[in-house]
Every structure is written in structure tokens, then in C-alpha cells.
Design a protein around this nucleic acid. Sequence first.
DNA 1: TCATCATATGCCCATATCGGCATGCGTCAA
DNA 2: TTGACGCATGCCGATATGGGCATATGATGA
Lengths: 117, 117
Amino acid sequence: MMTPMARAATTSDVFNAIAEPQRREILVLLRAGERPVNELAQELGMTQPGASKHLRVLREVGLVRDRKAGKQRLYGLDARGLRPIHEWTGGFERFWNESFDRLDAYVQDLKQARQEE
Amino acid sequence: MMTPMARAATTSDVFNAIAEPQRREILVLLRAGERPVNELAQELGMTQPGASKHLRVLREVGLVRDRKAGKQRLYGLDARGLRPIHEWTGGFERFWNESFDRLDAYVQDLKQARQEE
DNA sequence: TCATCATATGCCCATATCGGCATGCGTCAA
DNA sequence: TTGACGCATGCCGATATGGGCATATGATGA
């Protein structure tokens, strides 16, 4: 029994949403203010459908909000969802600071355990 | 010409590496210190091959280092790669703080543009 | 040299993604 | 009402992933 259950949790969470380079670019652009889809697509060199799809993902995880403005639809940033990521990575801060010492000792070990590979 | 070029950049960058829940769990566990594969697999309830695969991804993006220790292979954290992400998200800090005001004004707009759907 | 333990890989299945393209849908102006 | 514009969707093709399982590889101790 048991369907092979390919891929586990993936879509629909902020970590995944910002794993895509173009989506990160969209977010950066939106810091300057709301923008209609076409403008975003043009400024980022992507097709309109392409922009719409990425915007959809961003909207589904709550990183952007949209509102109608005439024929256009303006997308705006809602960065609150990035905070958890900032905090999660922040939980490793002391480690990347310690890194010098730790890596140094680490490298020593490596030199002695030179039977590597 | 131009091969359809399906998926764009994905693997091999830190953003993608931490987009996987189990890989994030591994990183968290490693904050307590180096661990052999089997131990990680057990503590996280995954199979040994599964753990090895996730560790490989983490190693390829530089988030973990490994060294031999007898029959085992100890994996250790190298959090330096998380710093760029922490900083990238930090670039949005003023936005999630402003959020209250901005969203408030935003909601007003929405209420008036109630022809939404 | 030979079992045995600890890992890494290879392979297959099922699915998730991305991009490109065509098309549907809603809005506005003539 | 009609046509153009702006955007969202649907569909297809190519590929990346994840998990499960079997097996190759490396290292250790008898």
C-alpha cells in the first residue's frame, strides 16, 4: 500500500516562495511601491504570464497583496512573512560568528585525518 | 531554437537548500554539535539514505562540513552561508515594521475599491 | 581476507515546477 | 455593444525533486 508519496511539503510556504530568484527580485522591486503586473514583467525581463504566476505564488504565501486600479491590478509588498525567516536564520548568528575559531580547529582535524578520500 | 529550458536556477543555492523542512531540521540539530548520519536519521525519523541525500545538498551549498571519524562520518554545521539570507530578509525589516500603518491605509483603499470580485 | 557496520549512490515512481503560448475574463472608452 | 488593453489560467514539454529500496563503497576488526 502507501502511495510512493513523492515530494513532501514544498509549495505554499514562504521559504519555498523566496527560493526562486525572480520572485526575490519582484519583492525587492516592490519595496519601491506598488506596481502593475506589466511594469514588473518589463522591469524584470519576464513575460506577463510569467510575472503573474510568480505573483500568484507570492500572494498565496502572503508576501504581496493586490488591489484593482482600473484595468490594472497593483501588487504591493507585505513583508511580514519574511520576518520568520529573518528570525530563523538569526538563530544561527552566533554560529557564523564563532566560525573562525571553530573552523580553525576544524581544519586542524582535517589535516590530521588526512586519509580523507 | 532554444531548448524549452524548463526550470530555471534551483538547486545548489542556499535559499533552495533551506526551502526543505527536513533540511532545516538537520541544521537546527547540528547546532548542538557534530553528528553521524545514522544518529541524525534516527532523531529526525528519516531513513539513512534520506538523511544522506539531504546532507549532500547541504554540503554542496556549504552549510555543513563532514569529516571521517572511524567508520562514521560526522557532519557539522557551517552556518556562514545563512548570513546572506539573514541579511537579505533584513533588508525588508523596515517594511514589516511599517506594516501597521501601511496596511491600514491599504485596507482603506480596499474597502473603497469594493468592486473586488 | 572476510564478515560487518556506516554511508553514499543508483534507479524508479509520482509529483512539483518553470517557461512558453494561446486563450479566457473583466474593465474601460468610443 | 464592440474592440483594445491588462491580467489570470490552462495546457504542454522538459526537468528537478523526494522518498523508498537495493546495492555499491569504504573502513574496521576478527
